[in-house]
Design a protein around this nucleic acid. Structure first.
Lengths: 240, 240
DNA sequence: GCGTTTCCTTGATCTGGGTCAAGTTTGACC
DNA sequence: GGTCAAACTTGACCCAGATCAAGGAAACGC
């Protein structure tokens, strides 16, 4: 896995500073991270990590989207996570990755060699605190996804997915945009994320379109005309 | 199963000492835990925690089986975790539980009030280290379960579940028993765990029975005649 | 521009597992 | 023991979503 090395941005100016694993670090702690970090970029479709492979680095996603996937012996695959900017790849104390990590779009990672990072964790409570938070958030997200995969209908799955995109985007950008969004994944990738086939994904999106709930600008870009309807269709408890 | 009404056992003699959150603690650390712990018992079917409820304690499962469940607004439920002896309930820094916790059998918990436990975590690396490990193990388990829920057939789900019971039991008991096992859950609970209906669970178990792979002693107790076949049917990569 | 490929849509058909509906077994309580 | 309810099994039928199949539209290289 040899990826071109981007020129590093100063941590102080990093777009993901407020949410990434380093968000609690300041001053001297940040200086150390600054010194050991290396940016790496991957082209869309490139595999970042192979399941079972030794993991020599950990990283934060700076830009782009990557997927975590698992595969059965006959080739059926299920995505078990989606990595968006500020999300973290890798686990202290874990030698190997348990899934494939693939760049869904062009991706830039802020990488730390695993060993130095683990040593730093031991003496930097601000770092380990945040990492525990991130792990627990992922666990909560994984459990919500289990409910989706085990019990939701195709319609509810798609609605939940779109609703997630809305929430995530309103978190990221302060700019109150008019609910114009981009699908970060192809139809097939969405299917693998939701436990569906790509045909069903396509049909459900078409159905939402013809119901006037969403409107496509092109294949990837769309607008949500009725966010409330999406939320209602998601099947989740109204209490958020 | 026998429902032990336990008064506090000395930590040194606790059956889950080697795997629970306290497993790395010795001497003075253990003395402190010993002082703040309280055993609580729950009858089979009793609800231990309600989703959204404030969580005033954290706990290790000493004996019995509890389930973590989520429910959609129309009542469909999905189990998102199974708590067996030595498993941990609760999260530092989390005020509320995100799911219902229900005793599937009579359950005994080793409880710690949340606040004192959180304070202890900050000054006891042995405790927080182990807790991070436990959280990451749960995350891995959740992701394996996502693959099961999203992509496996009913047959594969049941085979995976039984295979898991075999592995877990061979971990727990050194006693090389003849693959005699107990289902820790009712048919309906298994269905909620696997994202199936109770009828499908029953049919699949009957099918495995008539194929001579398993044999029932009564509703809950059975013997695995062909563990290899179960493993093959699970759909997972042969590489464990 | 024009072929080629990749991605997506839409239709027709099939099927695994859900739903509905009886029965049967078990076990708890009087 | 007898009664009753809960838990489980089995059968008949149905449907959401998978599978198979045929185009269409955007992107890419030449």
């Amino acid at each position: 896995m040899n990826a071109p090395v981007l020129s590093n941005i100063k941590c102080g100016e990093c777009p993901i500073r407020h949410r990434a694993v380093c968000s609690r670090c300041e001053g001297a702690e940040l200086d150390i991270l600054e010194k050991i970090k290396v940016y790496r970029s991957f082209k869309a479709g490139e595999q970042i990590l192979w399941r079972g492979e030794a993991m020599d680095f950990v990283a934060s996603v700076v830009s782009g989207v990557a997927t975590l996937g698992k595969t059965l012996e006959d080739g059926r695959t299920q995505m078990v996570g989606l990595l968006l900017p500020s999300d973290f790849i890798g686990r202290p104390g874990r030698e190997r990755v348990e899934f494939d990590v693939i760049a869904a779009s062009d991706v830039t990672l802020c990488c730390f060699d695993r060993k130095p990072f683990e040593n730093l964790l031991l003496v930097t409570p601000h770092l380990s605190e945040r990492l525990v938070e991130i792990a627990l958030d992922e666990l909560d997200a994984a459990r919500d996804w289990m409910l989706l995969l085990g019990r939701k209908t195709a319609r509810e799955k798609i609605a939940t997915f779109l609703d997630m995109l809305i929430r995530r985007s309103s978190l990221e950008e302060e700019t109150a945009q008019n609910d114009a969004l981009t699908l970060p994944l192809s139809r097939e990738e969405i299917a693998n994320y939701l436990g569906l086939t790509l045909e069903t994904v396509s049909r459900q999106l078409s159905a939402l379109k013809s119901q006037g709930i969403i409107q496509f600008k092109d294949r990837r870009n769309f607008e949500v005309l009725n966010p409330q309807a999406l939320c209602d269709l998601s099947g989740d408890d109204s209490a958020n």
